[in-house]
Simulated assay, not measured.
Amino acid sequence: MRSLLYAILVGLIGAALLHIVIILALPRFTAEDAYSRVLGLYEMDSFFPLTSAPGPTGLSNDDPYLRVAVCGFSVLGGPVRFTASGDVPFWSLAIYDSGSNEIFSMSDATAVNDRVDVVAATPLQLVELRKQPAETIGQTITVEMPEDEGYAVLRALAPLGSYEAAASKFLGEAGCEPMSR
């Protein structure tokens, strides 16, 4: 009986210490989330390619066959349009909110005309967009943002060296810009 009480007491003290350590370490980890790192790259509304070596923000591209670019954006001033086109064997786009929760993703297999043409907006902005003539957004895919800010990750496959130029061009010409009205 005495050893059981001793084990429970040691377990409770250990659990309390673990919780204290986690609470004290939490601020260090919250400043290093993906969204904070993307905001640290450069200014928003532009895709920036990631390299294999971690940059000042710690973001890097670890996959030897994928080329990756990221863009931080805000829909406060209006909808944001993501565009890209090119001759790459595979591409994908993922949009995340500021909590790094995936809001939307697509690839070349689900795209219209093998192009990236996506608009992210608040619910009210989407209502306004749908009131405009069909030519304004045409076959553009619309994404409702639950928050005002987020980031997008665009990936292009370059399985061989001969695809490197096409993947670089695809990411280099990609757009992540506030939509003009």
Rank of each mutant, 00 (worst) to 15 (best):
F73T: 00
E128I: 13
E135F: 11
S168C: 02
S85I: 08
V153P: 12
Q125M: 07
L157V: 04
E147I: 11
F48Y: 11
R130C: 00
G40S: 12
Y65K: 13
E128M: 15
T140Q: 04
G78L: 06
G72A: 14
T30K: 15
M106Y: 00
I137R: 03
V119Q: 00
G78N: 05
Y35I: 08
P159F: 07
D87C: 00
G77F: 08
P159K: 09
C71Q: 05
G55S: 09
R67K: 14
S105V: 04
N61W: 04
D45W: 08
E43R: 12
A84G: 04
V118M: 03
A158N: 00
R130Q: 11
L157E: 02
Y42D: 13
V116L: 13
Y151H: 14
G150C: 09
P89Y: 03
T110Q: 09
T142A: 02
Y151V: 06
P89D: 03
G77M: 08
L129D: 00
M145K: 07
A53D: 13
G161R: 10
V116I: 15
A109E: 11
Y35W: 15
R81W: 05
Y151E: 03
D117R: 14
G77S: 14
Y151G: 03
A84D: 05
D114M: 09
G138D: 11
A109M: 09
A34N: 08
S98G: 10
D33E: 13
F104T: 03
P159E: 06
I137H: 04
T30A: 03
A84S: 13
E149P: 01
P133Q: 09
P133V: 11
E149K: 10
A152C: 06
D148E: 15
A94Q: 07
Q125S: 07
T30H: 15
E102I: 14
G72N: 05
D148T: 15
C71N: 03
V143M: 07
G86K: 04
P56C: 01
D62R: 07
A158I: 09
G86Q: 06
G40Q: 08
W91P: 02
T142I: 09
G161K: 10
S36Y: 04
